[in-house]
């Protein structure tokens, strides 16, 4: 059973239907089941955080949402994942087009070996059609949205790798949002950064919340509490509990969530 490939009518902003819907999702690495029967909905214009101990499947879940797992052999997903009402797991889905709609930022900053400008313009040039003055303004607005414009506006033509780690990561965020994706995925985006850079990235995420459906995976519980509207706790491939962050961190319903957020394990 797959949902028809139709985009629902534009929802009212505050109470619109979910941007991402996941139903009965199972994920396999070879023969081992690493995501078990995940069901959930994630709202647009909000930040959803996923927490849990290493190996719980939170990064795997992220890699399903843009089908990154397809780059590696022997990995497969079963079930239904809808983004903006369109099924993304079907065999006829154009994966490159999906990844264009669903941006991703990785744990380690990954600036490409080119100038800051070219880094941010990379996705826009891939899609084609964006050139000249429009390209310049799109790059600038992406860098502004990622809260890095003031720091790099005088070195747009310097190599992206010459920036500091925190600046590189925000350039990577700018690169991901330059193509105006529907969803922005972040896989432990501050794990490799110092506290001040982490703060900058978190502020950036707060600012982006207005425009995107953001999904962030983090090891840092305080970070999840600080930035997210909704938090999901995952454990051993299961989504144990998901709800408003204030509730997850203060009065979780499940014992395991309670143990984890109070630091009894993990």
């Amino acid at each position: 059973m797959r949902a028809p490939l139709v985009v629902p009518p534009e929802p009212a902003k505050d109470l619109g239907p979910p941007k991402i819907e996941i139903r009965a999702l199972n994920f396999y690495y070879g023969d081992s089941l690493s995501l078990r029967n995940i069901n959930m909905s994630l709202a647009d214009h909000s930040i959803s955080a996923f927490i849990g101990p290493s190996g719980c499947g939170k990064s795997t879940l992220l890699r399903v949402l843009n089908r990154m797992y397809g780059l590696y052999p022997n990995q497969r997903a079963e079930g239904e994942v809808l983004i903006g009402g369109r099924d993304i797991l079907g065999p006829t889905v154009d994966v490159a087009e999906l990844r264009y709609r669903v941006g991703m930022v990785f744990q380690k900053p990954t600036p490409f070996p080119m100038s800051v400008f070219d880094n941010v313009a990379f996705g826009l040039r891939l899609g084609g059609g964006v050139r000249g003055a429009e390209l310049k303004s799109r790059v600038e607005s992406a860098l502004r949205d990622a809260a890095i414009w003031d720091e790099v506006k005088d070195k747009l033509h310097a190599d992206g790798r010459s920036l500091s780690g925190g600046q590189q990561q925000r350039v990577c965020i700018a690169r991901a949002i330059a193509v105006k994706p529907e969803v922005l995925l972040l896989d432990e985006p501050t794990a490799a950064l110092d506290p001040i850079s982490t703060l900058r990235v978190e502020e950036t995420l707060q600012a982006l919340r207005e425009k995107y459906c953001i999904v962030v995976v983090t090891h840092n519980l305080q970070q999840a509490a600080r930035v997210s509207n909704v938090t999901g706790f995952m454990y051993m491939g299961e989504l144990v509990e998901i709800g408003p962050s204030s509730q997850i961190f203060t009065s979780p319903k499940d014992r395991r969530t309670d143990d984890y957020v109070t630091g009894r394990f993990g």
Binding site: N66, G103, K108, T110, F122, V179
Partner: peptide
């Protein structure tokens, strides 16, 4: 670094690109 390749793929680039 693998991350660089993954980042490019995550932007929707085909392997040749």
């Amino acid at each position: 670094p693998v991350g660089m390749k993954d980042s490019s793929a995550a932007l929707g680039a085909y392997p040749w690109r």
